[in-house]
């Protein structure tokens, strides 16, 4: 977390498109954003692409930031970007017919086996892939953005009680899956 005074100076530098500030932005947040995307899509190349797109979006949107928690703002943009990614994936899958989809899966599996990518990053990744996308996204958003429940609820445009309940259920389910796996 950045101190308020430091954050204010940092944002002003970003809004003036100071190259040094953008460098600092990449340095500070690219790791967290990459981990967030990786945990959700499970693909390193795709995650790198998403992080790259995210920083381009931040350049475009930095003037819209008008105070408050910077993490909240940044991860709201990241979350919206992930949803756009899901929509693109959905549209892409819809375009393929069943046979082509099957062939694509086989080819993808072969490719992963060939490159060693078939190894799942860790058990957490395995468990997250078995959770529904919304819950997984909520858990990772909370974990990597490090914002409180109130801000999390605001980011998702839902009541705090609903967010609390979803996080509680999601974490419980995740724990059960991981305990079973052990």
């Amino acid at each position: 977390m950045i101190e308020q005074q430091e954050l204010s100076t940092f944002i002003k530098r970003l809004q003036k498109r100071d190259a040094g500030a953008f460098e600092e932005l990449v340095e500070r947040y690219s790791g967290r954003c990459y981990a967030y995307f990786y945990r959700l899509c499970g693909n390193p190349e795709q995650s790198e692409e998403l992080v790259s797109e995210l920083f381009v979006r931040l350049v475009e949107k930095i003037k819209t930031f008008n105070g408050g928690s910077f993490e909240k703002w940044l991860f709201t943009v990241a979350s919206n970007q992930f949803r756009d990614y899901l929509r693109r994936q959905y549209r892409y899958k819809r375009l393929l017919d069943e046979a082509a989809e099957q062939q694509r899966r086989e080819e993808e599996a072969d490719r992963r086996e060939h490159t060693g990518e078939h190894v799942i990053f860790d058990r957490l990744q395995w468990a997250l892939e078995r959770l529904d996308t919304e819950t997984a996204e909520l858990l990772m958003l909370r974990y990597y953005s490090e914002v409180g429940f109130k801000e999390l609820a605001e980011m998702r445009n839902e009541p705090v009680g609903t967010t609390l309940s979803k996080v509680h259920r999601g974490l419980k389910k995740l724990r059960l899956m991981l305990d079973d796996a052990e």
Partner: peptide
Amino acid sequence: KGDALLKRFADPVLSDKAKDLIRARF
């Protein structure tokens, strides 16, 4: 407990090469 469980797992790390690519695109 859930938070503690999540913290037990290491975060995926963005490679320096990927970081450089992001900087270049940026």
